[in-house]
Amino acid sequence: MLTDWWTIALVTVGCAFFLAGTVGLLRFPDVHTRLHALTKADNVGLGLICLGLMIHDGTLPGILRLGFIWILAIFAATVSAFLIARWHESAGTED
Protein backbone atom coordinates (compact mmCIF):
# COMPACT_ATOMS: atom_id res chain seq x y z
CA MET A 1 0.00 0.00 0.00
CA LEU A 2 2.94 2.28 0.72
CA THR A 3 3.82 2.43 -2.99
CA ASP A 4 0.25 3.47 -3.80
CA TRP A 5 0.54 6.44 -1.52
CA TRP A 6 3.83 7.42 -3.11
CA THR A 7 2.27 7.24 -6.55
CA ILE A 8 -0.75 9.30 -5.54
CA ALA A 9 1.46 11.90 -3.89
CA LEU A 10 3.85 12.20 -6.82
CA VAL A 11 1.09 12.36 -9.42
CA THR A 12 -0.78 14.99 -7.43
CA VAL A 13 2.29 17.19 -7.12
CA GLY A 14 2.95 16.64 -10.81
CA CYS A 15 -0.54 17.82 -11.64
CA ALA A 16 -0.01 20.81 -9.41
CA PHE A 17 3.05 21.74 -11.45
CA PHE A 18 1.01 21.41 -14.62
CA LEU A 19 -1.54 23.72 -13.09
CA ALA A 20 1.24 26.16 -12.28
CA GLY A 21 2.45 25.96 -15.85
CA THR A 22 -1.02 26.69 -17.25
CA VAL A 23 -1.66 29.52 -14.84
CA GLY A 24 1.72 30.93 -15.79
CA LEU A 25 0.77 30.62 -19.45
CA LEU A 26 -2.44 32.57 -18.92
CA ARG A 27 -1.27 35.17 -16.45
CA PHE A 28 2.27 36.10 -17.45
CA PRO A 29 2.68 39.34 -19.41
CA ASP A 30 4.93 38.44 -22.32
CA VAL A 31 6.19 35.56 -24.37
CA HIS A 32 9.42 34.90 -22.57
CA THR A 33 7.95 34.56 -19.10
CA ARG A 34 5.20 32.34 -20.47
CA LEU A 35 7.80 30.27 -22.21
CA HIS A 36 9.72 29.94 -18.98
CA ALA A 37 6.65 28.97 -17.01
CA LEU A 38 5.54 26.52 -19.61
CA THR A 39 8.66 24.50 -20.16
CA LYS A 40 9.89 24.45 -16.58
CA ALA A 41 6.58 23.66 -14.91
CA ASP A 42 5.39 21.19 -17.48
CA ASN A 43 8.59 19.23 -17.60
CA VAL A 44 8.84 18.94 -13.85
CA GLY A 45 5.17 18.02 -13.76
CA LEU A 46 5.68 15.35 -16.39
CA GLY A 47 8.75 14.09 -14.56
CA LEU A 48 6.88 13.68 -11.31
CA ILE A 49 3.99 11.91 -13.01
CA CYS A 50 6.44 9.59 -14.72
CA LEU A 51 8.11 8.93 -11.41
CA GLY A 52 4.77 8.16 -9.78
CA LEU A 53 3.84 5.79 -12.60
CA MET A 54 7.26 4.15 -12.42
CA ILE A 55 6.56 3.23 -8.84
CA HIS A 56 3.09 2.09 -9.76
CA ASP A 57 4.40 0.07 -12.69
CA GLY A 58 7.35 -1.54 -10.92
CA THR A 59 8.53 -3.64 -13.92
CA LEU A 60 11.99 -2.80 -15.29
CA PRO A 61 10.96 -2.28 -18.97
CA GLY A 62 8.10 -0.10 -17.80
CA ILE A 63 10.41 2.05 -15.73
CA LEU A 64 12.94 2.33 -18.54
CA ARG A 65 10.24 3.36 -21.00
CA LEU A 66 8.83 6.04 -18.69
CA GLY A 67 12.31 7.35 -17.91
CA PHE A 68 13.12 7.45 -21.59
CA ILE A 69 9.95 9.38 -22.38
CA TRP A 70 10.76 11.90 -19.70
CA ILE A 71 14.35 12.46 -20.90
CA LEU A 72 13.23 12.79 -24.48
CA ALA A 73 10.45 15.21 -23.48
CA ILE A 74 12.92 17.40 -21.63
CA PHE A 75 15.31 17.41 -24.54
CA ALA A 76 12.59 18.17 -27.07
CA ALA A 77 11.08 20.88 -24.86
CA THR A 78 14.37 22.67 -24.29
CA VAL A 79 15.26 22.73 -27.98
CA SER A 80 11.77 23.82 -29.00
CA ALA A 81 11.61 26.51 -26.31
CA PHE A 82 15.00 27.85 -27.35
CA LEU A 83 14.06 27.92 -31.03
CA ILE A 84 10.71 29.58 -30.39
CA ALA A 85 12.26 32.21 -28.15
CA ARG A 86 14.97 32.92 -30.73
CA TRP A 87 12.35 33.06 -33.46
CA HIS A 88 10.22 35.47 -31.50
CA GLU A 89 13.30 37.53 -30.75
CA SER A 90 14.24 37.76 -34.41
CA ALA A 91 10.64 38.84 -35.12
CA GLY A 92 11.34 41.93 -33.05
CA THR A 93 14.48 42.89 -34.98
CA GLU A 94 13.30 42.21 -38.52
CA ASP A 95 10.46 44.64 -39.14
Binding site: L72, F75, A76, V79, F82, L83, R86
Partner: peptide
Protein backbone atom coordinates in the same frame (compact mmCIF):
# COMPACT_ATOMS: atom_id res chain seq x y z
CA UNK B 1 23.58 26.17 -39.58
CA UNK B 2 20.60 26.33 -37.21
CA UNK B 3 21.68 26.41 -33.58
CA UNK B 4 20.88 23.30 -31.53
CA UNK B 5 19.03 21.67 -34.42
CA UNK B 6 21.89 19.33 -35.41
CA UNK B 7 22.11 18.11 -31.84
CA UNK B 8 18.35 17.52 -31.65
CA UNK B 9 18.63 15.69 -34.96
CA UNK B 10 21.49 13.57 -33.67
CA UNK B 11 19.39 12.67 -30.64
CA UNK B 12 16.08 12.08 -32.37
CA UNK B 13 17.27 10.11 -35.42
CA UNK B 14 18.31 6.91 -33.63
CA UNK B 15 15.24 7.08 -31.40
Amino acid sequence: PMPMLPSLLAMITPV
